[in-house]
Amino acid sequence: MQIRLKVNGEAMNFDVEPRLLLVELIRDHVRLKGTNIGCDTTSCGACTVLIDGHSAKSCTVLALQADGCEIITIEGIGTIEKLHPMQEAFYKHHGLQCGFCTPGMIMAGISLAGELDNPDESEIRLGIEGNLCRCTGYNNIVEAIKSGLSEMKQLSLSATSESQLYPKDADK
């Protein structure tokens, strides 16, 4: 079936099987390998991307459900030459070890910018409860996200500039 979506700002068309998951579309069709698959039960968050500015577990979204959406992956937020503040914060605070959870964790951290203002440690911990890490004990990840969010605020960055937090027309 035909879908059209934007990945990291670029419009793309694909012909997909209904059962293709968004994470497989990203990895195998768009061929961006930063987004990982770490479990079968929507538990681990290694596949976290932004859909229309909000964190989403791309292993639990059919590619067809993402038709017309704007997807941002780890590859779409910064480069080595110009890091996103959240990437910079992970780098600075040693917020990663084996790196498998890292892309999802960074995307989840960025998504928090849209929901928490000056979060404290426990709010950040709850905010990333859906992203599992086996290496770091989360200590430095929490530090990194705290500093990344504060830097984002300084720069007035939200998850993406084009999206809003939640559809304002929901309340009528």
């Binding site: 390998k33 990982n36 780890i74 590859e75 990437q87 780098y91 990663l96 790196g99 498998f100």
Partner: peptide, 21 residues
């Protein structure tokens, strides 16, 4: 000293066996 591994890991992700094409 900050990790030399990180710049790639935080921008493109590391390259695991499942990522090889």
């Amino acid at each position: 000293y900050r990790r030399l591994e990180d710049p790639i890991f935080i921008t493109k992700g590391a390259t695991y066996v499942g990522d090889l094409e």
